[in-house]
């Protein structure tokens, strides 16, 4: 933790709170969806779980940003009263590993839209493997499992990767990120233009 600035950690924590609050606003809808459609009803919005790690990695651009931020996000989510309880911290780490692996593959150098979407899908993969175990999805028919998996992949790519990038870029324009990697890049680009 030595090379992490305190403000980076707190930024990750507050981002988690923001999405936690937004997420809680969606939760009743999620509950109804699952009630009527089964676990698959949840899959389209599953990507919102990974968005913090994508945004944090994209803004801060340090090795470990995706993993640490997802762990923080899960901890905050659980503090805000999410019902999975302490197990959520473990789940967060598992999700974080998926995204982190994708960033690691680029040696934490490339933060293009494609990489962000792949990172979202990375979290989708690891979280799905965990879900198979935790929720016993393995007992479902193979086609059903496959459908769930594909929807989760798409959700990870679009909600976490794409929306994560669009939101971060919009925030960078406000100038509040000036002391973070993304804000600095944005300033450089603006100067060049």
């Amino acid at each position: 933790m030595k090379n992490w600035r305190l403000k980076e950690v707190i930024v990750m924590a507050t981002l988690s709170v923001v999405f936690g609050v937004i997420y809680l606003a969606f939760l009743p809808i999620g509950g109804v969806l699952v009630g009527f459609m089964g676990p698959i009803g949840y899959e389209p919005i599953f990507g919102i779980w990974f968005i913090v790690s994508i945004i944090a990695a994209y803004i801060i651009r340090k090795p470990g940003a995706a993993f640490i931020s997802e762990t923080i996000a899960a901890t905050i989510e659980f503090m805000l009263g999410n019902a999975l309880g302490p197990i959520l911290m473990l789940v967060g780490m598992i999700q974080g590993i998926g995204a982190e692996a994708v960033f690691a593959a680029t040696r934490w150098k490339i933060y293009s839209l494609w990489v962000l979407m792949l990172a979202g899908m990375g979290s989708a993969v690891t979280s799905f493997i965990w879900g198979m175990f935790q929720n016993g999805y393995i007992t479902f028919a193979p086609n059903y499992i496959l459908a769930m998996f594909v929807i989760r992949l798409i959700s990870g790519a679009l909600i976490a990767g794409l929306i994560g990038k669009v939101l971060s870029d919009a925030v960078a324009k406000t100038g509040v990120l000036s002391s973070f990697a993304l804000g600095k890049e944005y300033k450089k680009r603006k100067k060049a233009a």
């Binding site: 933790m1 992490w4 305190l6 950690v9 707190i10 990750m12 924590a13 507050t14 988690s16 709170v17 923001v18 936690g20 609050v21 937004i22 606003a25 640490i68 762990t71 923080i72 901890t75 905050i76 503090m79 805000l80």
Partner: peptide, 23 residues
């Protein structure tokens, strides 16, 4: 658990009512 993470998380958690009001 590293103190930086622990207190960082607490500091962020403290904002939750403020962020709700702000929304």
């Amino acid at each position: 658990f590293p103190p930086k993470l622990a207190y960082g998380i607490l500091a962020g958690y403290r904002f939750s009512p403020m962020i709700k009001d702000e929304l």
